[in-house]
Design a protein around this nucleic acid. Sequence first.
RNA 1: GUUCCUGUGGACGAAUUGGUUAAGUCGUUGCUCUUUCACAGCAGAGAUUGCGGGUUCGAGCCCCGUCGGGAAUACCA
Length: 542
Amino acid sequence: MYRLNDSDDNFAASGPRLYLILNIKLMNEKIRLRFAPSPTGPLHIGGVRTALYNYLFVKKMGGTLILRIEDTDQERYIAGAESYIIESLKWLGIEFDEGPGIGGDVGPYRQSERKSLYGKYALQLVESGHAYYAFDTKEELDAIRTEYEGRKETFRYDGITRQQLKNSLTLPEEAVKIRLESGAPYTIRLKVPRDEEVLINDVVRGEVVFQTNELDDRILLKGDGMPTYHLANIVDDHLMKISHVVRGEEWLPSTAHHILLYRFLSWEDTMPQFAHLPLILRPNGKGKLSKRDGAKFGMPVFPISWEGKNAEDSFEGFREFGFMPEAVLNFLAFLGWNPGTEQEIFSLSELAEAFTLDRISKAGARFDFEKASWFNQQYLIQTDNAELGQLLKPFAEEKGYEVSDEYLTAVAGMMKERVNTLPEIVETGYYFFEPIREYEEKMIRKKWNPDRQTALLNLNQQLENLPEYQAEKLEASTKEFLEANSLGFGDVFPFYRIALSGTTKGPALFEMMEALGTEEVKKRLLTAFPAFDEVFTKKINS
RNA sequence: GUUCCUGUGGACGAAUUGGUUAAGUCGUUGCUCUUUCACAGCAGAGAUUGCGGGUUCGAGCCCCGUCGGGAAUACCA
């Protein structure tokens, strides 16, 4: 189904024996994907999308999703990054079947804990003539690089230059032996063959060809005995029986090396299928989205907040911005993929149902925060008010507001279609929780007259005496009052509204009144009138 | 510089695989609804499919060239 190269005609012609072999092959090719982040800091939104696509494909195909921590670089390792990754994905509802803290048959799932495994394969490659020891120090190589740069050239440790460098290919056998035995630091490099082509069959990009002459002899095992990404990745993907590698496009240029590694380790027949995802670009289209862009464009680029060493290194997440996880997921899913139908609101399980690798687009997608906000609003609107009230709670508490769950539910219901995020409810709707900060003058200036006050107070009196202080009853009673006093809606409404909320915008007036309650309404009316009069006097005098 | 990827309205992107007037969504403008704002509904503006050639009765789709954007080019992943 997913291996197109297994031709059906061959199969028909070759009888039961091949059938058996193919069958075994298929059984071994269970769908197993991995998400393999590096704990070098918070997981940015591009990484989250990679995790999401891996998850979706696994769910769609009924496979297994593995979390593998690629912590082979002890210099860039950051404590807390791993738990950040796990917490982020948990918040979003992306769950793993195997991984650190979860278990599984092919662990451990942290590369640092698998350190002893990799050397063997590096050695095997040396023995088979596909890799070699290199003794050049970092400083020496840096010097060569700057020298090349001076000539406006780029240095590459490859099939040509390695002949002039210090390695087991150029040094006498005896000298190599002595160096190795003396414990002198060395690396193991891949010996890339000359004059060959490496073909990558990428699920999203089709066939991509690399000339080996353009490839460098990449380091496989570092001086500290740790493998580089390239070695560790291939060894682990093989040992963990990974069937598909779904990762960012930035890995495409390295994939030729990876394929060579599979070939030299004789694992090419069980090599995973590759799918390289398009990059997520900056809102202005210039370059790939980076962690600094959050501050630059005033939007989150991380799933949840990250507390770094300083303010520069700390980031606010989508969660803290007030986004719902479902909305983030939905938005992210559409960044580089689309179902080809007109549906755009998808739950996680609906996404999994609709997801296919062949509908992933090739070109980089810009990160459009406005679209993300729109998705969030859609989810806000479709979420039950009581549930929203609960989600709103932390944001209200943060502001020091102490109100009941019922009140929060009511406010959420009134405000949800007027905002994009949760905290906006307590910000633009602050007047539900504290006194009016400022009255919008324009309407008052235009229409207020101190004698309106009497009518307003009479009306309020009538409303207070209602057996039930409830929106529809309030409205009906108000209508009666207006008719009886031959007044229009416009004569009282704007002032009532501004008195209660300070603004001409906002939810339906009677609903606000119901939520606020008779006491508060009266209080607000009485504090508003003097303010209105003040505006009026100012107008008269000017 | 080199290698590789990529290019459809401002953004995301669809187009039955070569078939006629290039979907839809976001954004934007206006209208309707509404006491306001928003939601919703309706309507409009916005594209010679990066550009230039070629093949073909016919090209967004195939071929060649060209330009732009991006990634990689580390003892980082």
